[in-house]
Design a binder for these strands. Structure first.
Lengths: 222, 222
DNA sequence: AAGAAAATTTAGGGTTAACTAAATTATATT
DNA sequence: AATATAATTTAGTTAACCCTAAATTTTCTT
């Protein structure tokens, strides 16, 4: 199944998968930005991935790409590795939830299926990582999850935090300090019309968050 | 400290370190064989490593190489990673002692110093891996160990197994099945003069081993 | 010490995955 | 519909690591 695949290819597929959760197709530039490489480098790689046997994505010049089922399977495998590793590092080595991401990003390409299984077993076949992100199953299905981000809530609404994006360590440290972790409950006190700032009640704290932050927190309305 | 170093470079340094435990200098061909690459490829790499700033090894045409202190430090760091990982996989994920080597070989290049420390702490600053191989300390000193291999014993001598080479899974499974693990005690029943076979008493077992095997088992005479 | 055998290096290539700069195509504005 | 701007692709390079085949150097044997 995963023979020819370099780390770079796995990263491309993972990022394309994440981008196509939001838009139907991922653009060359968006991929380049998230990969931290030049757009020209992306074009070359996309051609290769589309020409792979089996093709890992469907590529139309100037119109971005979409993963094929084969490509999606690889992406989900990597995401499963990543999230299992985050939880494993947290649970068995005492890593903070703000520290697991970088380590998992490197390990995810390197662990065997054997190790993936052993970790999953040891953790009791967990469904979510420390940030509340759902862990794809061994059959490589990503469990459904709320797509409602905090910035879409109205004044007075109450909600429970389901998950937060895991890639910004500074943000994670801050969220932890104010108690905005998965399962925490909150109420929107006020939303300012012109700048989209949101003031929230979280436990004993009152927190004001800008839209760049609230877009990274996903909730379930109560 | 470790900025420019690719996985390949780390592997070269590790292998050169291991070769120079036996001979004063490591030859191009010996390195090529252990790396599984062509001798010509080794020459190119050795030139690069000698030209590195700081130089990682000292290279004399047609006379092999010796590590510099800087090169030795990198090698020991990787060996520390490898052996800590072997023990970690064994202890916390239930891997068999024959299964840990391949996984550790890939992970050793990828874990952070942070993770190295956390693993060492969790395992209680261990001194040896599951095969009895000594784990270099954080100050990067390799603890001394016996250099007497089983093939050097005479009839009638008793000894305790200290360590075994870790890279042959089939051999490890066999040794486990007959009880030839670190700390096991044994007595040489007979050594045949012409073929160097050794017959041993190990617990209830009587085992006959050829020299290719006995050279991979290190002991302390009792 | 000469010649044969073994070890090593040189020379010339190939692949992967990145880069920059210039050219092209698509989209948005007026 | 023309033009400006943004997005994308092409072309030409680079660096890391590997290869094979041929040439050279060292070591071994007689």
């Amino acid at each position: 199944m995963r023979e020819n695949l370099t780390h770079a290819i796995e990263d491309y597929l993972k990022i394309i998968f994440e981008l196509t959760l939001e838009q139907p197709r991922a653009s060359t530039n968006a991929i380049a930005e998230r990969m931290g490489v030049a757009p020209a480098s992306v074009t070359g790689m996309l051609k290769r991935l589309a020409a792979n046997e089996p093709p890992l994505l469907e590529y139309r010049k100037h119109h971005g790409v979409e993963l094929t089922p084969a490509g999606r399977q690889v992406a989900l495998e990597i995401i499963r590795h990543h999230r299992l590793l985050e939880l494993f590092l947290h649970e068995t080595l005492g890593y903070g939830w703000d520290e697991v991401h970088g380590e998992a990003d490197r390990l995810e390409h390197v662990i065997s299926e054997e190790m993936e299984e052993r970790i999953a077993q040891r953790l009791g076949e967990p469904q979510v990582d420390p940030h509340g992100q759902p862990i794809p199953t061994r059959e490589l299905i990503l469990p459904p999850h709320s797509t409602l981000s905090l910035d879409q809530l109205q004044s007075g609404q109450s909600a429970r935090v389901e998950r937060v994006e895991d890639d910004d360590a500074d943000l994670l440290r801050y969220l932890y300090s104010v108690g905005l972790v998965p399962r925490a409950e909150l109420t929107v006190l006020e939303r300012s019309c012109f700048d989209d700032n949101l003031s929230l009640q979280v436990g004993a704290h009152v927190v004001v968050l800008g839209p760049r932050v609230t877009r990274q927190i996903y909730v379930e309305v109560l």
